[in-house]
Structure formats: structure tokens, C-alpha cells
Amino acid sequence: MAVEVSERRTEDEERELIARIGRGDTELFYELIEPYERRVFAIAMAILRNEADAEEVAQEALLKAFLHLGQFRAESRFGTWLVRVTINEARMRRRKGHLDIMKALGDQRQSDDEGSFIPQDFADWRDIPLEELERKEVCELLARALTSLGDKYRDVFILRDVEQLSIEETAAALQISEGAVKTRLLRARLMLRELLAPGLGGMWSKTGPTATLKGVNPWH
């Protein structure tokens, strides 16, 4: 059965492409990666938050994919495999820069139990217009909030929400269960909401009927 992997290519066509590259038609590699280039860069960018680093890591990941294409097993999808290579590469780069694997927010608070994140800020900020994204500092703030999450939450969020992979694809790329994808995604989303809610960040405090509910716990 031919499964659509991108707008223009089926899984079978992709397999054929990989086989031809393996037989020596290396120029086809650029055609193979074309639909994934943006994703590879976006993942590297989300993890490293630095355009120059992200670009280099994206190149490194794609180069590795090229060099190890012979080891790629056809039972998994090329895109999924490439995501894994990219995440590994970006993490390695980040660790080289500074040993911060333990300092992420997700690891400091209540992270023993993946499902038990409790919202603490109830300010309402539903009315933020998407046009805010035109402002560079808003994008920067969102990116910074994302990098402050622990690895396991951020990776799931990047693949599922930023890159909009399905739950199944995210699970395959990270080699975790679909259940784990769901619990981590819930936590990542709630943590980001909390980080960016007007009461804490102050970023959007001007919008909406906010702040009146801040600090009120529903169980009190």
C-alpha cells in the first residue's frame, strides 16, 4: 500500500529513491531530503535556539543521513529516522556548548510523575492575536519558553505541535509509546501555558480580562 509521506511522494517512491541513491545516484539525495529540510532545521532551531548552530546541526544531521543511508532500515520511515538523527545531533551540540541537561524547567518541578502537572496560573489569555507573531520578540519569547522545557517534554512538543507530526509518528521518531507521547505532550502544553500566561511572563498582561483569577486555586 502506498502511504503518502509528503505532498508529492509516496512511501514506495521514497524507498525506490533510497535504493537508487544506494546504487550510486548520489545526486538524488537532495531530492530525497527536500521535503524534510525545513523540519530538520526547525527541530535543530527549537533545541538550540541559535540560527547559526541550527544550520550547522541541520547540515551535520543531513550529512550523517547521507553517510549512513546504507544502514537505514526500510521498515521505518525515512522522515522518522531523519528526525531521530537530528534530535541526537542537536542534543550533542547543546551539551558540547554547556552542560545544562539537568537544569531544564521540566526536570525541576514535579517531574517524577509525568501526568500530574497542576496549573497554578488561571489568568485568561485566549485573545492573543496571531498577528503578534509578526513581532520578532514574541517569537523569541515563545522559542525561549520552549527551550526551557526538559528534553523529553520539548522533543514531544516540537514534533507534535511545531512540526505537526501525528501521535503515532512522534512515538516512532522518539522510540517511545503513544501513551508516553500523550502524557508528555499534555505536560509540555500545560507548562508552556503556565510559562507564557500573562501573570507570570507579563508579556500579554494588557490583553483580556486577566489577572483577576491569578493565584486562585480551584480546590480552595
Binding site: R38, F41, A42, M45, A46, P119, F122, A123, D124, W125, R126, I128, L130, L133, E134, C139, L142, A143, L146, F157, D161, V162, Q164, R189, L190, L192, R193, L196, A197, L213
Partner: peptide
Amino acid sequence: SVLHGTQNIVRLYRDPRMM
């Protein structure tokens, strides 16, 4: 508030301008 804020998070990060 939690539901709409979370929905907003998903909407914001899914916007192509984010990356």
C-alpha cells in the same frame, strides 16, 4: 482559562511564522 490558554499555545506554536 486553562483550556483556552493551552489551545492558544498550540495555535501559536503551530503557526509557520514561529520557525
